[in-house]
Write a protein that binds this DNA or RNA. Structure first.
Lengths: 342, 342
DNA sequence: GAGCCATTGGAGAGCGCTCTCCAACCAAGA
DNA sequence: TCTTGGTTGGAGAGCGCTCTCCAATGGCTC
């Protein structure tokens, strides 16, 4: 029932005065940093409640050199017109991170970076101590941001392995295994003329999914399957599907490197009168909301994005806690989620 | 080309020493707070570049009582299982805000609140000075968070008008006008048996859209149109459409209170062999990514969400800048975007 | 040439907190 | 009784910055 509107907010000093102890003791109670007599603890707690005291983050950060905040940096999403959050995949990363952080009482600072200038600005902001570290999602493999962060000494964890070896922690997915899951399922259904829509091939994940697909397909005794490169948008999936259908009208299976492109393929297949999965089986990748939203619902290779995001926060917090700059990485295994499209 | 990895980062003091001036002068140059001799300015700038100096945010905040950060608080998204970001509508709010803030060099702190406990935590976090103010998106009308923020003296701007009068700034949309746009278009196409899928009726925006719809429909000389209540998810749109179709098999028009529900309606209509727009015309609301992603692409009432988000940041920054607690509000007008579904 | 005001630089206090010392105290062993 | 060692509270420095004063300077006017 405190008013606390106009007046200066209460400080440690105020609490100490009310409790009749020193500032140091109050600080000890708040931070449980050393033994304090239980009776005194109680007095202090009461004084805190009475004054409505709240620690001043800035003052604390100034001495501890910690903010208790971490940044979520999305780099290179310019092509997505700033709508990257709407992409069901990144949405999952973000919510996964938020949910992992919430129990710890830490909230992420959301930063986007596309241009050279904005990347520099992000690094500056981080160096200024606005966050203790960063969880980074870099869309393109040549993104310079990870290297810049390492150089600036900012603790960071990447989503996906960096192209060039870098002293940085990351989480990743066994993309090849995922592609193999898809191929095996397609083959199991009896598909014989399979095609694939890859992601942009400058992205390692896309390369891996394509390579995994071709390898697995070859393992089943087939020659290399036709593919068209997309860019992870639904629109590119539609275009790719049109193309594949024109070149290979007899195709009976499609593996798309993400769900959005698979959804686009579904539209096109229907427009051409192909029944899914009877005429053509379609498998997506990610298990994003697009997979359940499309008709028929997509059979897809699930990426445990939320778990991966949670692991990122864990790795980052570890890295910040320890002061040696040791880095760790974790690779997750995909699973196949069978719905109606294959 | 600075190394700056292990050693303590340079401080104002260091820069002052290198430049041969006082700390105060360097501060003046950085903050352009008073006239400083151009020659000295140049010297100082050089010293800053040489030392690789970066202001320490915590120290600055401690004295200015400003962080230069604002929070984006999403309250009551629990029903969405933390996937709220994936909702194309909230994604747009977020990107709109980020893009508006970016040129100013401010990055938002992302905070979710569902439970009473988490709301209290959010308010605490804000009171501790982790942000100068908050942009708030509250899903439910009875959400106590806005009132809590006002009570705590945290500057805030709401998306959508608060149910109870509250001394708080907000942006909103003229929902009734939007519904009218949809009705007029439907009538213009010759629809005579129109139905609507409303949003959850505890949300003021849903009430307004429904009321606007019924009013406009009545203005065209029709009796009240049938409606079913949804909850803004695609799934609820499907269920609602099934229901409407069962009760009113002769319907020739549907107005859904958001695009996701309209997309769900589209699926169901197709499953029932109805051609859109020939047999049934469908209009959505929002003009989110779901509108362009569905087949046929949705004719929809566009909400200028990005502009609204930008306006929110402007209102908030104003409110923080001025010290009187004056509040302002802005109501935006919707437009109709005609695609293929109606 | 004396006096005045506007302009610009420096000194230093202080923002609210943590944390290192140091002092006080108490219990146990000799 | 004195010493020793462990426990707990207080004093005070200092984190890096801003901002209020005050002093110095220089160009005027009369």
């Amino acid at each position: 029932m405190s008013a606390a509107s106009q007046a200066r907010p209460p400080t440690l000093e105020d609490v100490a005065r009310v409790a009749g102890v020193s500032r140091a003791t109050v600080s000890r109670v708040i931070n449980t940093t050393r033994n304090v007599d239980p009776a005194i603890q109680e007095t202090v707690r009461r004084a805190i409640a009475k004054t409505g005291y709240t620690p001043n983050t800035a003052a604390r950060s100034l001495v501890t050199r910690r903010t208790g905040t971490i940044a979520l940096v999305v780099s290179g999403a310019g092509d997505f017109g700033g709508d990257i959050l709407v992409d069901p995949f990144f949405g999952r990363v973000t919510s996964g991170l938020i949910n992992a952080l919430r129990p710890l009482g830490v909230y992420p600072l959301l930063m986007f970076a596309d241009t050279h200038e904005s990347r520099a600005h992000v690094v500056d902001h981080l160096r200024q101590g606005n966050a203790d570290g960063a969880v980074v999602v870099a869309i393109h493999s040549q993104d310079p941001l990870p290297a810049m962060l390492v150089a600036a000494g900012v603790p960071a964890v990447l989503f996906a392995r960096p192209t060039k070896p870098l002293s940085i922690s990351y989480v990743d997915l066994a993309h090849r295994d995922g592609a193999r899951l898809a191929v095996d399922h397609l083959v199991g259904r009896g598909c014989r003329r399979v095609t694939t829509i890859s992601g942009p091939l400058d992205v390692p994940a896309s390369q891996e999914r394509l390579a995994g697909f071709q390898d697995a397909w070859a393992d089943h005794g087939h020659p290399a399957a036709p593919y068209v490169e997309g860019n992870f948008t639904q629109d590119s999936g539609e275009k790719a599907m049109e193309h594949l259908l024109a070149e290979h009208p007899d195709l009976d299976g499609v593996f798309a490197a993400n769900d959005l492109m698979a959804a686009g393929a579904l539209h096109v297949l229907r427009d051409h009168g192909r029944r899914v999965p009877d005429d053509v089986a379609v498998i997506g990748f990610d298990d994003s909301s697009a997979a359940t939203a499309s008709r028929p619902a997509l059979t897809t290779v699930r990426q445990p994005v939320e778990d991966m995001a949670a692991e990122m926060s864990r790795l980052l917090l570890d890295r910040i806690g320890r002061h040696d700059g040791r880095v760790t990485s974790v690779v997750f295994e995909p699973t196949l989620v069978i719905r109606h499209s294959a």
